[in-house]
Design a protein around this nucleic acid. Structure first.
Length: 399
DNA sequence: AGGTATTCACATGAAACTATTCTCTGAGTTAGG
DNA sequence: TAACTCAGAGAATAGTTTCATGTGAATACCTGT
């Protein structure tokens, strides 16, 4: 019986015509042929990097701008163009792109050097060696290449917040120790205040050139979306009105193109699943909720056990604002009942801060004068997810 | 009344510790010549 | 004698504990009127 219906379902799926022609065009990793509304920045960056083609060392570059403003796309695009150009005129150039947050292979000093070294052909174990040794291996590898090497560090702020700015200091000063090769660093971040937190020495050498990526406005977003929608959907599936709506919503949220594309893609998926042949505004509404829902549920699920326990305690206290002390009491009882080891209040306090940062709970500091100073914690979940999360957590802790 | 000192309940910071995973090194063991 | 095995030392890392210090404002306590 089940077999039969499932069979039908697959069959139906296969025969039904998809409304997409190339869904990939709406995904973050898609590289468009040309980058709309970024021509000036492309030109600027290209002119800074051009000296590599004459075998000269370009300035280090520091790029900043909010998420979804095209930083990564632009730099990757230029990197591609540059290396193919270098290839055609026989200039030795190697470009290494690392996303520190995404590739978790590179979020510490050791791992970054190991990763870079591997990109150049060395084999470096994941652990066991002193960091300085790994750095030496990397340096040797670089020098052996006898070429210009451009290292692109996407989301550098992650690296610094975890390990301090010594890494960058080492990297930026490396060229001095090398006999044959040259190294150029391109740092990318969406933390606009990041530069201020750096050691002045590092700062001045990293940001020989600074480039700001401003957010897209609604009109620009519309162009981008329209172009991508053209590639991604069959013609007539998405009309201009929907694209405009989509762009407007994303523009409201600081001109984040990635979000806009996500919204459109999910809306398309929803329409397709519902068997509709056109994407309409209704689908956008559902998509907006869905994205929210998925994001929150995913973050909660991926939390470590103790963090979930803390969240669950907050949920069980259920309702008004509670203090850190209240949460800790409930948490302790819960741990004892479910056989989980009890962490110190110090640690729980940190876990609460983390949940706050993730936007799952809100924790406001408040002083009660004579009666101490504590955080007031309340749940901060969209109501759609609340039930689901409660279910997930209570089954995990068996209550 | 006005001003200062206390006090509470944590927040926040820094350092040290723990468990795990992994490499390197050198001593001991084994198998083949 | 060369190849292999294995234990011990040393690293990196995530997660945590320990110890120390910081914090904001309601209250308690003084002081002089």
């Amino acid at each position: 019986m089940i077999q039969k219906t499932l069979d039908n379902l697959f069959e139906e799926f296969l025969t039904k015509e998809s409304i997409f022609t190339c869904k990939g065009a709406l995904q973050a990793k898609y590289q468009p042929k040309n980058l709309l509304h970024r021509e000036e920045l492309v030109k600027e960056l290209a002119s800074i990097l051009a000296p590599t083609l004459r075998d000269e060392l370009p300035s280090n570059i520091f790029i900043y701008g909010k998420t979804g403003t095209g930083k990564t796309s632009v730099i990757r695009w230029i990197a591609d163009q540059l290396s193919s150009k270098a290839g055609s005129i026989d200039v030795r150039l190697k470009i290494i792109y690392v996303n520190i947050k995404l590739d978790r292979v590179a979020d510490t000093e050791y791992r970054l050097f190991a990763y870079l070294g591997e990109q150049l052909g060395a084999t470096i174990p994941t652990t066991g060696l002193p960091t300085s040794h790994v750095f030496d291996v990397f340096k040797r590898e670089v020098d052996a290449k006898d070429s210009t090497i451009i290292v692109i560090l996407d989301e550098v702020d992650r690296l610094i917040s975890k390990t301090g700015d010594e890494v960058l200091y080492n990297l930026t000063r490396m060229t001095g120790d090398l006999k044959h090769s040259k190294v150029c660093i391109i740092g990318i971040t969406n933390d606009l205040k990041f530069l201020d937190t750096l050691d002045p020495r590092v700062r001045s050498s990293l940001s020989e050139e600074e480039i700001l990526f401003p957010p897209y406005n609604a009109l620009q977003l519309r162009d981008i979306l329209a172009r991508r929608a053209e590639i991604a959907f069959k013609s007539g599936v998405v009309d201009q009105a929907v694209v405009r709506k989509c762009a407007a919503r994303a523009a409201r949220e600081h001109g984040d193109a990635r979000k806009a594309l996500d919204l459109l893609r999910v809306a398309g998926e929803i329409a397709e699943r519902a068997g509709d042949t056109k994407v309409v505004e209704k689908h956008l509404d559902i998509a907006e909720d869905r994205i929210d829902f998925d994001r929150v549920l995913e973050t909660v699920k991926s939390q470590p056990r103790q963090s979930k326990a803390v969240l669950f305690s907050i949920m069980r206290l259920n309702g008004e604002e509670v203090t850190t002390g209240d949460v800790y009491d409930t948490y302790r009882h819960m741990c004892m009942n479910s056989g989980l080891s009890v962490l110190t209040q110090r640690r729980v306090s940190d876990l609460i801060s983390e949940l706050d940062m993730l936007g799952i709970v809100s924790a406001k500091k408040k002083s009660l004068g004579r009666y101490g100073r504590t955080r007031f914690i309340s749940l901060h979940l969209p109501s759609v997810v609340h039930g689901n999360i409660h279910e997930v957590l209570s089954s995990e802790f068996g209550m």
